[in-house]
Amino acid sequence: MSQSHLLIRPQGTAGLVTSVTPESAGWTHVGFELHRLSPGGTVRGGDSSRETCLVWISGKGRARAGAMDFGLLGRRITPFDGPPAALYLPAGMDWEVSAETALELAVCTAPDRSGDLPPRVIDPAAMERLSRGVGTNVRHVTNILPEGEPAQSLLVVEVITPGGHTSSYPPHKHDEDNLPHESQLEETYYHRFNPPQGFGFQRVYTDDRSLDEAMAVEDGDVTLVPRGYHPVAACHGYDLYYLNVMAGPKRTWKFHNAAEHEWLVKK
């Protein structure tokens, strides 16, 4: 069976292991990279036209940007150990992160139309944390960079879905510029499992089924959601973490539930 064009497997175990650009994804807004560094390793970045949200998936690293020293950030050992450290950087600001421990760093980018927001550390203690759903649809959300916090394009959130539960469910989509009912947003999912040998499933599909792909996702995989509904299921015994990066022409998250599954919201 050939691999879905929406499923991105990690390339190697060290350095830049995953890279999604607008060009490689065939879309306009979202960029995503995943770096795995050994202690003492360094990663650098910065773009003249794109804002960045750095997310410490696990481990500790010292961050600098421009002439600013943000010190040592990160405190969790795995992505299942509470909220992450994060750093927002506007377009035109070069940055560097040096690993103090083994470090897994996500680099989330999107167009920055002005570059006039200041860089800032996003305090883990200030991140909104909530649970959604009922029964086997319960999942736990941490809002890293929601629409109520300053940014030009980026929306960044992470979710933990207990084993045997569904997430991004009932199936919803956000692929039409039809505000206030629905916004047009591209999206990436970066998946991790606990224990790491676990797996889950994600389906990406449209009403007319012109896009309809079901994927088995494993630890470290990224899935692309250019359009359509995109539910996820975590298999029994394996909790699923994912980091979502979203961006589109307007910075707001308004979604549309699949009509045939809308009844699940009303249970």
Rank of each mutant, 00 (worst) to 15 (best):
G82C: 12
T188P: 06
G46K: 10
S48N: 14
A102Y: 01
P83M: 02
V121Y: 09
I160D: 07
M127I: 00
E218V: 07
E100S: 13
R192I: 02
R113S: 14
S49W: 10
A86N: 07
I122F: 06
Y205A: 03
L34M: 10
A85H: 15
V97H: 07
A214T: 13
L243N: 11
G26C: 12
L155S: 05
G41T: 02
H174V: 12
L155P: 07
S131Q: 15
H29W: 14
P84H: 01
A106M: 03
S168I: 08
E23L: 11
S48F: 10
S24V: 12
L7F: 02
A216V: 14
F32R: 05
Q3S: 15
T21M: 02
F255W: 11
R44D: 13
D219N: 15
A99W: 00
D239S: 13
G74Q: 03
C235N: 12
L87P: 00
L117E: 12
E260N: 12
E51V: 10
H29G: 09
R120L: 06
V134S: 14
P180I: 09
K267F: 08
A86C: 08
H172M: 15
Q11K: 15
S19I: 01
L117F: 00
T21Q: 03
T142E: 11
V55G: 02
I77Y: 02
Q202K: 08
L243T: 07
L145K: 06
T101S: 15
L155D: 09
P196V: 12
V121L: 13
V157E: 15
H174E: 00
H256Q: 14
S2A: 14
I144G: 05
G200C: 00
S153E: 08
D47G: 09
A63Q: 10
E147L: 08
G148I: 05
H236L: 11
E213K: 07
A99V: 08
P150M: 05
V204Q: 00
V20T: 04
A151K: 01
L73M: 13
E176R: 15
A14M: 06
F255E: 12
A110R: 04
T21H: 11
P162H: 05
D221N: 14
I8F: 02
A151C: 00
Y88Q: 04
T18H: 03
G15W: 05
D81C: 03
R132C: 04
L145V: 11
G200D: 07
A258I: 00
P90D: 02
P226C: 09
L243W: 03
D116P: 06
D221Q: 07
T142G: 01
L154K: 10
V225P: 01
G59V: 04
A106Q: 11
G61S: 10
V217E: 03
H256N: 12
